[in-house]
Design a protein around this nucleic acid. Structure first.
Lengths: 195, 195
DNA sequence: AATGGACCAAATTCGTTTTTTAGTCGGGAA
DNA sequence: TTCCCGACTAAAAAACGAATTTGGTCCATT
């Protein structure tokens, strides 16, 4: 595998990323990706066995970017509460940029393109683990009092996704961030008075 | 308006309720509703100016049922935490039965049939008020420590809907109820240790 | 006043034709 | 030998026009 070869494959994925993001999986043709890459269509098939495989490569690339971004953001934080907040916000902002990933993880896509189920399941797992780990750190620091880490991680993920979904409809993100702040306050302190 | 008239209108709504639930708004024809009611189509138009108006009557009927059920369930509870839990569970169970309402409040429907937006907005308002009232009761009983009731009510609604969405996909409701219990524990006690 | 059958424009469906697309393959260029 | 492309094709999707259905109207009947 020569350097030239790495460049062609990467260039295909990059061009495909932009076009898939614009038109979605179904409306994007291999011909236009080939044209954008200034290669023949057969060249695409030399590197990727199918359209689905190319789209999967694009999604995997975005997942990798997302994970790198999350790790970078979390490395800066020291306490479990800050990490939890940072995770939720980083994920939310990244999804806004990584258009293919956001689309791919929507249930509508999962219904029509089952081949991305594996990536999604894998990411869900990763996400559960990240939250569990943050919670575990909070427990060990004596900050959190929690019994079933995994279950609570799951519930936190799902609940924050409710707000995230509203963000997807909203054009104004500050309101959604405010809502996430409020949700986190409830998560940390609860509704019951503290004596 | 005679008794006979009340019966025909109600019978139309009841039959329509069943058929709309089965086939959805678009696939249901006024002809089949008329047939099910043993009346001519013109009779439907005597009572309802349009197909949309009939569907709206069906939805309003289901909203009325839901509200009655919620009020009944809440009347039995004394404490704010129990009421909050009861609200969430009652709503969830009722939506499973009130198939038209569940469909109508799905975003997919709202996209295609804007005429139900008003009902939905009205219900959202009602829901916000119910939760705020429950929270207010908790504050007055000295149980809850809360500043912005409305905002927190909103966040609670949205977060619990995240779990509810999973319930719609799940066939097993006990798991979702368990998740709601966990969410409520977090809502009540928070993650931070209590000293 | 309540009801239904006839009617109709618009919307939807359906079968057919045309076009496009994902993918293949043989051959040429580097 | 590897990289790359143009020609090709079966299948899928889109376009098209005809046929059918649908929401709604209206007049006559009970």
């Amino acid at each position: 595998m020569t350097n030239e070869e790495i460049d062609v494959e990467t260039r295909i994925v990059e061009k495909a990323q932009a076009i898939f993001a614009r038109y979605g999986f179904r409306k994007t043709t291999m011909d236009e990706i080939a044209r954008a890459t200034h290669k023949g269509k057969s060249t695409l098939y030399h590197y990727f066995p199918s359209k689905e495989a190319l789209f999967t490569a694009v999604i995997e690339r975005e997942v990798k970017e997302l994970k790198a971004e999350i790790h970078q953001a979390l490395a800066v934080e020291n306490s479990a509460p800050e990490k939890l907040k940072t995770y939720i916000l980083t994920r939310m902002h990244a999804f806004k940029r990584l258009a293919n990933l956001y689309q791919a993880f929507a249930d509508e896509y999962l219904e029509n393109y089952r081949f991305i189920e594996k990536i999604r399941t894998s990411y869900d797992e990763y996400e559960r683990k990240i939250i569990s780990k943050i919670l575990q750190e909070g427990v060990q620091a004596g900050l959190f009092a929690i019994s079933d880490l995994d279950l609570i991680a799951h519930v936190i993920v799902v609940a924050s996704k409710g707000l995230e979904y509203q963000w997807a409809l909203d054009k104004d993100t500050t309101k959604t961030e405010q809502n996430i702040d409020t949700l986190l306050q409830i998560f940390f302190y609860g509704l019951f008075t503290r004596t």
